[in-house]
Amino acid sequence: MKHHTLDQLRGIAQIVPGLSPHVAARRVRLERWAEVLESIRHRHLDTLHETEFQMQDERDALRSDYSPITIAFRDPVLRAAGIADDTYGEAKRFFEISDDELHEIVCYCRFGTTVSAAAAAREVRVILAGRPRNLWSRLSSFFIA
């Protein structure tokens, strides 16, 4: 095995900072998710159908091939931090968010069949801000992409 310094590696590879599973606090994981979504802001992602009407086991198993949760799962930094798959239940566990919070990011009833990555990122940032959702923030998320 040949050893290289970090500076040498930067010349031959893209260095992606990692998050240790023990160090990656909830806030850091949510911030990274928002950043990854913002990096593809104009893409339209799949929503999950009627999350609020599913039984808990069924809801936790919900997934789509191209949802905001899938984008998080595909990110190498979040994968290294411990996200195990792209299901609804895993997103709740990994990001330490409630059903109500995740519903605001991924549910069909909020956005229709697709949600822009920018709108999903805004919803993640609402969670980060810790502000209660008011009527204006709910209406603006429908009309501002």
Rank of each mutant, 00 (worst) to 15 (best):
R29H: 05
K2G: 05
Y88H: 10
V124G: 07
R27G: 12
I144V: 09
Q14N: 12
L9G: 04
D75Q: 00
H3L: 13
K92V: 04
S137K: 06
R110C: 10
Y66H: 12
H3Y: 14
L139H: 12
R32D: 11
D85E: 07
P17M: 09
Q14M: 09
D65E: 14
C109N: 13
R133V: 07
D75T: 06
I71H: 03
I144C: 08
L135T: 13
P21R: 09
D7R: 05
P76N: 06
R125I: 06
W33T: 06
I127R: 00
R79K: 13
T87N: 12
G82S: 06
I69P: 03
A121Y: 02
V106S: 05
A61P: 07
I127T: 04
R131H: 14
E101H: 06
L37F: 09
R59C: 02
E123C: 04
P132E: 14
S67E: 00
P132W: 10
I12C: 12
L139V: 11
H3N: 10
S116K: 14
S116F: 14
Y108W: 11
P17W: 02
S67M: 05
S137N: 11
C107E: 02
P132T: 04
D46I: 09
R125F: 08
K2V: 14
A117L: 09
W33F: 15
I105A: 01
I127D: 05
I83H: 06
P17A: 00
A25P: 08
A119V: 13
G130R: 11
S140E: 14
H44P: 05
F111C: 02
T87S: 15
T47C: 00
L30D: 05
H103Y: 15
D85F: 05
P76C: 08
D86G: 07
R138T: 13
S141I: 14
I12V: 15
S141Y: 04
P132K: 13
E52R: 08
G89I: 01
E50P: 00
S20L: 07
D60L: 03
D100E: 15
P68H: 00
A13N: 07
V28L: 15
T113Y: 06
Q8R: 01
A84H: 10
T51G: 07
V23K: 08
R59G: 02
M1W: 08
R122H: 10
K92P: 11
E50D: 09
L37S: 03
H42C: 12
Q8A: 15
T47V: 04
Q8V: 01
V126S: 14
D85N: 10
I97A: 03
L135A: 14
